[in-house]
Every structure is written in C-alpha cells, then in structure tokens.
Design a protein around this nucleic acid. Structure first.
Lengths: 138, 138
DNA sequence: TTATAAATGCACTTCCGTTGCATTGTATTT
DNA sequence: AAATACAATGCAACGGAAGTGCATTTATAA
C-alpha cells in the first residue's frame, strides 16, 4: 500500500498540497466528477489549477476522462486494474438520467465490437444511460 | 417513395424553404455534421434557425444526435430502419481520428450490454474511434 | 383579407475549455 | 543559507458552442 505521495513521485509528478487535496477528493467520490464539482469543493482554488492538475493526472493515467454525453467532461480515478490506455481493457460507464451522476462500471468490460472492413478500431467509448441503483430503488 | 414535403407533413412539421434546404443538406452528407457545418453551408441563414430546425427534426426522429466525444454535437439523418428512439435498435458510430469525420454504422447493431442489479438501461451510446476506411486505405 | 400562430433573425447570455502571463512556490546548486 | 532555475499557481481573458428572449416576418386558417 503506497501513499499518494509515493504514487505521484513514481509518476514524476511533483507533490503539492493542491494535488494531494484534489487526489483525495477524487478518491472519496464514488462517481465521476466535473471540473466544476471540484471547483465547488475547493472554493479557494482557481479553476485553471484544477484544470491543469486533472490534466496532469490524466497524462500519467492517474485519472481518466469520461464523456457521458452530458456535454461536460467528467473525470474519475483509475483503479488498480484500470489500464484505461489499453483498448482491450476498457470498462463502460453508466449515466443516471435521474440524479445525473456517472459511475464507472469497472468490472463490466466492453464486449468485442466488430467494425466493417477498412476501419481500424483504436478506442471505444460506451455509455449506458438510464436509472442507477440508488435511484431505481431495486 | 415520398417527397421531403410529404415526410415533414406526416410528422406535423410545417414545410418551409429553410427546412427543405437543411434536410437536403443532411441527406447529401454521408457523415454526421455539426451545427457549424450547416452554418457554413448556408451563410445566409442564422445559427439559431439551424439550431431550432435541427432540434425540431430531432424531436420528430428525422435526425438523431451523435455525441462522438469531440465535444461538439453532431447530427445525422435517421435512415429508413433507424428507429433511434428504440433502445434495442441502436447502431454504433465511428469517429475517425484522422479526418475527424463521424459516420453511422447503421448495419452494426450494439450488442446486448449487461448492467449490474438495480441499474436500468434506457439508452446506449457507443462510439468507436480509430481510422476510417477512407483514411486507412485498406 | 384578416386573424392567429409558428418560423425566422438578431442580440445577448451562459457555460466550459483553454491559453498567456505574471507571481508564487519548490527543488537544486553553489 | 543564498541564489538560481524551473515548475505550480492564480488572474485575466478569449473562443466556441449551446441556449434564450424578443421583435419581425412568414405561413396557415377562419
């Protein structure tokens, strides 16, 4: 079990107070968050800093970006087995039309998708929309 | 074979010159287009008109919206068997990272996606990214 | 033809993503 | 410890796209 500091250092990311706070915030959240979500959580911080911090995390595959169709980019921490840079390991995302939250269904891998001849698949984005478990009451 | 006028009338959409032009533009295009694409094609028309026209078309399932992950909403005409309002008939979209074009792969249906207990699937968005047939040269 | 309602055009706002630049903070070298 | 170099942060601003309010024009119906 490594600390956040060790994780950042292992990725050659300088450890700062802001980055630790943002990482912890993402780790606590069980859902994908927008930049505005983070901004609201730290009203002292500037949007640009958050933006660039998340971008830094993204480039080092600490977080991955989620496009859930709301038009607003969301972010979530990569998990241990995330490997979100490898195509064959993509998981799907679920967006709840009721509470507007998006969660990673990490254990649900995307099935093999066939594309026509001549097309080369490099990346797949799959978002299922509907009602989440918290809202459905099932 | 019905005319565009008949199609619009059958959907209770008033036939106007602008709407006919926009419909024809979409019909000619083999790829999904953005609002700006339409705007550039008719520099006489106002963006708001295009925006609302496409929205009208969308509500009557004449066009469907595509979120290909570029951050810009795209639109494409629904085809005969499109039924894009029915979940089980969703097709996938392919976005080319090279030419930046997005096409509907209408014949490629989305496979059944399993979601965890408590989750209710209502809609699925699947975008495959890579290199299209025109760019791959295969 | 007139009355009614919808379609269009213009102006404007908001939101998000993004960048430039000055300032602050961190790390490294002397 | 002081000086240097560089990265992180904060501020301001820009640009693109979506969306709205309202006045005007156009089309349908009485």
């Amino acid at each position: 079990m490594q600390t956040i500091e060790q994780l950042l250092e292992s990725k050659n990311i300088r450890v700062t107070a802001m980055r630790l706070l943002i990482y912890k915030f993402l780790a606590e959240k069980q859902v994908a968050v927008t930049l505005s979500d983070i901004e609201n959580a730290f009203d002292k911080a500037d949007r640009t800093t958050l933006y660039r911090t998340v971008k830094t995390f993204e480039e080092s595959t600490i977080v991955h970006q989620i496009d859930d169709g709301t038009g607003i980019t969301k972010y979530a921490l990569c998990e241990k087995g995330c490997n979100c840079d490898i195509e064959t390991d993509l998981h799907l995302h679920f967006h709840c039309n009721n509470c507007n939250e998006t969660v990673c269904l990490t254990e649900h891998k995307i099935p093999q998708i066939k594309v026509p001849n001549g097309f080369i698949s490099e990346d797949i984005n799959l978002v299922v929309k509907g009602v989440c478990d918290k809202c459905s009451g099932l």
